[in-house]
Design a binder for these strands. Structure first.
Lengths: 329, 329
DNA sequence: GTGTCCTAAGAAATCGATTTCGTCAAGTAG
DNA sequence: CTACTTGACGAAATCGATTTCTTAGGACAC
């Protein structure tokens, strides 16, 4: 790789002049031509590492997500990438695995790598985000809240829970269960609260094991659904508070031969790879990609020097109704 | 952020000594203590950018994949990440979107970012991989071949196609169609050749529209399946040459009410988010994660200075048989 | 004709680490 | 006791860009 010194030597000018040409600072037309010719010939492109050291910042943004294999987060990542790529930034994608230590580790890296900023779906509320913000590096929280006063892009999870449960109730289901995630994850807790609000409003009983806590993944949904089916009076419908648990629940149902709309199923989150006709299922679509693009735009604003007080943007989910039960129960 | 000079001043030593302490070079015990105390107090951690400039390399690896929303590639990425993370490297994930220009762009970035190496699922055979290899940066191809003489980790795609078609034949299906991807993508072409080999071996007719080319995604699988069902004599089984097209095909089948094993379905690739019981479907499991871990290990070897001739590792797919048809047709 | 101002462009400092080189002191051999 | 080796460690060069400082030269006013 050619350096700025080689270009300068070949063009018969100083390195400073080469730098000026590449940064659009005033240089005589004559020398501009010399420099362009020399740099073309040597296929010169400025060394980003040296630029970064000198400028104390880079055109790299970190994105920290808990699970790269969850389609929700990949859609989010896709949204982030689209915006950043268009703005000439590159994206470093880090998998925190719901592990606070990994999160801290990657935040340290963001720091010592001089990244321009970070978009973060936080694992722990007390993460070491300060280290970045103290150095003036913008951080945007996405999907989940931090305790800190920073930009955030969130989904109205309570409303999503209400929407899901209401859709099932309106379709005629009366014994609506809920498969919730681990207690520590606030998003799923909020959705659960939305479900509970609807169920109790209608005076239905929600205390007989209809609330199942499970891990956030497919197998969690499976075991929770199995537990629900084993109840003396199984539910006639179920809300799952994320996409993967929804997959697990539907798998179990299809294995025992109970297919929606024989049982009502509402999933909060999208099922991009559902293999049965998605029409039978109520989906509360989370705007994952939009979450990503919004967060990326906010981050770019901050990088550009925007200093307004921290904003929180709340996006709403959109529902696709599933079929109603075949006959009144 | 504290610099090495501040640490040196506080400890009353030279920056060189601080550097030596951090790099395990011989320093007297007495000064080691001084440096440790000072760096702890200042929470010093070396600036990676400066290290990278000086050392002409970094502990960052680039992974270029065509589609971050495809579970095959996220599983692969996950495998890469596990290995790199354990070795203290970080991963920059780049989405090439099957676009040769984006691929070139990201390869340039890998170059000027002084990345330690690159793992690449190439889009175009004539990509600008040379620019990296010429500078001594190792590159490992994964999933797809390059024309170049570099390390590669591949799947035996022909065998995967043969396995899929044979499983259906052995289960008793006799009119086996194939949903293939775009002609440019060699992986799906090889799988298609495997299918054709089995079909022609048994003297079955494969020329009556049973081979459908479609785009590589869910909607491609949908339209191909619809075309197959519209034939005068529709197939009684179908092989799809990737996971997403499989999803689309199965969706269409479930919508028209034909459920496996009424029709035979063999998918090359995994269906991690299938919502029907996967038991009815033959899956040829591609070792996506293993592909990633293998590639990452090979890359780390090269980074460590391994100079043996380029290797190509071929992994084999594993089949999970679906159910046989209910009655002989 | 001389003083002032402005612009182009080179010299040199800077970012923060690593590493070579040289110095000095202590230890060992003759 | 001198000569030579060895080891710790500081001074300074280096990586490749950007930016400040400085200087030279031209344009213009008086």
């Amino acid at each position: 790789m050619a350096t700025i010194y080689e270009v300068a030597a070949k063009a018969g000018v100083s390195p400073a002049t080469v730098s000026r040409v590449f940064n659009g600072l005033p240089v005589s037309a004559e020398k501009i031509d010399l420099v362009r010719a020399a740099s073309d010939e040597l296929r010169y492109s400025p060394n980003k590492t040296a630029q970064r050291l000198r400028n104390q910042s880079s055109e790299v943004v970190g994105l920290l997500i808990p699970d790269i294999e969850n389609p929700f987060f990949t859609a989010l990542a896709r949204g982030v990438e689209d915006v950043l790529q268009a703005a000439g930034y590159s994206l470093v994608l880090c998998n925190t695995d719901e592990d606070p230590d990994k999160e801290t580790h990657y935040l340290d890296i963001a720091n010592s790598e001089n990244m321009a900023g970070v978009i973060l779906a936080p694992v722990a509320e007390d993460g070491d985000i300060r280290r970045l913000t103290d150095r003036g590096r913008p951080v945007v929280a996405v999907d989940r809240d931090t305790g800190l006063n920073i930009d955030a892009v969130m989904v109205d999870n309570r409303a999503a829970g209400i929407t899901a449960a209401t859709a099932l109730w309106d379709a005629g289901y009366r014994r609506i269960a809920c498969i919730a995630g681990p207690l520590e994850i606030e998003t799923t807790e909020e959705r659960t609260l939305g479900w509970r609000q609807v169920v109790t409003k209608h005076g239905a009983d929600s205390s007989v094991g209809y609330l199942q806590h499970a891990n956030y993944r497919v197998d969690g949904g499976r075991s929770a659904m199995q537990a629900l089916l084993a109840l003396d009076e199984p539910p006639d419908a179920v809300v799952t508070t994320n996409n993967l648990m929804g997959v697990g629940a539907i798998q179990v149902l299809s294995e025992v031969g109970i297919v929606p709309p024989e049982i009502g199923v509402a999933v909060i989150g999208d099922l991009p790879f559902a293999t049965l006709s998605p029409r039978a299922i109520t989906q509360v679509h989370l705007p994952a990609r939009h979450l990503g693009t919004t967060a990326a735009k906010m981050l770019l604003d901050r990088i550009a020097g925007d200093n307004q007080p921290a904003r929180t943007v709340v996006l709403r989910a959109e529902v696709t109704l599933g079929l109603a039960p075949l006959a009144a129960s």
